[in-house]
Amino acid sequence: MDSSFLLVQFVSGLTMATLLFLVASGLTLIFGVGGVFNFAHGSFYMLGAYLAYTVVSLAHGNFWVAVLAAGLGAGVAGMIAEAAFLRRIYGRSEEGGFQILLTYSLILIIDDLVKLVWGTEYKSLSRPAGFTGSLVIGDVTLPSYNLAIVGVGLLVVVVAWWVLSRTRPGRIARATALDRETMGVLGVNVPLTMTLVFGIATALGGITGALAAPLRSVTPGAGIEVIIDSLIVVVLGGMGNFWGAWLAALLLGEVNAIAVATVPEWASLFSYLVMVVTLIFKPEGLFAPRQVRKV
């Protein structure tokens, strides 16, 4: 195996890792801050893909505008879902079970609404202008759109770090995660904070759906297909740990890329293998999860 192949394979793993992370980031964010396990996160991802398709193909929109529109649409949908439904079950005993059921019902509802609006035909979204080609250096071929995705992923990580640790809303969100009641007493509008964070999380899902659309197929049921993989990332990274999710996604992406190149017949089991081995030794994930209030 020569070095140029290793580089190419590494970038393949990086592309996969970045998309994995982008979907998982919203999931882990809302779990970390709100203690909500949003099983319907994948549905917002799917919604983002369909919204981007509509903006690009029907409104002849610019792809990047469509990505933002997808984020906005999924974010608003998420805020509505949180304010209208999820908010009502906070603080119940056995809240965990009700969270799962409620978000599961959102999956079923959103799936059929998508089918009603967009039908079951596969939708197509092309790569944006300027990103259709590849960067070729000698033996190494690196598709520019894949590189762009890796870049966006890094951007999200940096922006999220900055917001969470350097800005006032970020600090409020982190503090809310630790102690909701005290923050309420201190005059912070906790319900609004929760709604906003939920909206940001689903917006991340929507943006990812839009970004991934040119590389995948936009089909019904796409939400369910990504949720389990994202879940693995979130669990591995320590639930609610944003950076942990990023590192876990990198680990899974690269392990998969190496496994595909070396032992292809077993490659598909590796992500599960990593997860099981980790969980046996560290049941709370590779990195410290956020302390969860008793559910």
Partner: peptide, 17 residues
Amino acid sequence: RVSGVFFTILTLAFGQL
């Protein structure tokens, strides 16, 4: 070894495996 949501997610993970 874990409780609450962690237990839920772990059982889900093993079930999917």
